[in-house]
């Protein structure tokens, strides 16, 4: 397993992101806003406290570009984002973080493949302070346009996050792939798939026992990870940190609204297997605008 780095990647990325004003052009600003419904925000196994939640949020990203020589770009971003969970306020959060990456295109033209690698940092403050965390990750990826209509993308992350409470602290590795199908200049259909291995938090409905709050599912007591009683939700819950593998797949439809804006409706299904298996479906509607 990876060791938590307490945001060292993030600190490096933040330090580097402060440099761009002097050596790169920008900032270029892009904004996003979204609403979403998640049918299992507790990541609970069936019957053990599955709760749905509605949330909305928005974010902005400032990006700087620097020419790194032939077909190479150095990009640095500084992002800020907030999410308001109207169902369970403890999940509402504010997030800020820098990102630094090197992108290289293997040749000339729209159909030449491009590669990137970098570091990503993030500090997230939750209304439920136990979940507040600092995260750092190595990121890498590949993308290639196959034609005017099709583009494939692969993204990988190797990350670590350190939260106020040990239950919400962990490490992970993930890979995600996407196929963009642009029906024309306006309509895009995107199919995604992903794999993640690492720590995740599953919440179980809690019941009071002579020993304090324990999960309603007695087998959960045998889970190997740390656990903690939480007040995030309206009812008593016990949060477990478990090591798991997660598969996700989704589809989205995205119409462009002019040349700078797009709207995206996405449905994503998440299946986690392991000691605490759970299913989760997220439906989101978002708008992205680049100035």
């Amino acid at each position: 397993m990876l060791r938590p780095t307490k945001g060292r990647f993030g600190a490096v990325a933040l330090a580097l992101s402060l440099l761009p004003g002097a050596w790169a052009d920008g900032p270029y600003v892009s904004d996003t806003a979204r609403v979403s419904w998640e049918d299992n925000v507790t990541n609970a196994s069936a019957g053990n406290g599955v709760l749905g939640a509605f949330s909305f949020g928005a974010g902005t990203t400032l990006s700087w570009l620097h020419s790194g020589g032939f077909s190479t770009l150095i990009l640095s971003d500084l992002s800020a984002d907030f999410t308001v969970c109207t169902s369970y306020r403890g999940l509402s959060n504010i997030e800020v973080g820098p990102r630094l990456e090197v992108r290289h295109k293997l040749g000339l033209g729209a159909f030449a493949p491009s590669l990137y690698a970098g570091i990503d940092g993030k500090a997230t403050g939750f209304q439920d302070p136990e979940q507040s965390k600092i995260e750092g990750a190595f990121i890498f990826g590949y993308s290639q346009r196959l034609s005017e209509a099709f583009q494939v993308q692969l993204d990988g992350r190797l990350g670590s996050y350190d939260a106020q409470d040990i239950v919400f602290t962990g490490n992970y590795a993930s890979l995600a792939g996407a196929l963009n199908w642009d029906l024309d200049e306006t309509w895009r259909i995107r199919v995604t798939g992903g794999w993640r291995a690492g720590d995740t938090v599953s919440n179980y409905t809690a019941v009071m026992s002579p020993y304090g709050w324990i999960p309603i599912e007695s087998d959960a007591l045998n889970l190997p990870g740390a656990w903690h009683y939480v007040r995030t939700f309206d009812a008593p819950f016990v949060a477990y940190r478990v090591s798991a593998r997660t598969w996700s797949y989704g589809i989205s439809v995205s119409p462009a609204i002019g040349r700078h804006t797009s709207l995206t409706l996405e449905v994503k299904r998440v299946e986690t297997v392991g000691a605490a298996p759970y299913l989760d479906t997220v439906v989101s509607l978002s708008v992205a605008h680049r100035y």
Binding site: Y28, S30, T32, T61, S63, L65, L73, L75, D77, R103, K105, A110, S114, Y116, S143, R145, E148, A149, Q153, D182, D184, E185, T186, R188, S254, A256, I257, G258, R259, H260, T261, S262, T264, S286, A288, H289, R290
Partner: peptide, 15 residues
Amino acid sequence: DRRIRRAPDSEGLGY
């Protein structure tokens, strides 16, 4: 008239 879509997605700038 088939051109590459310009409208942004959530992936930022560059290539």
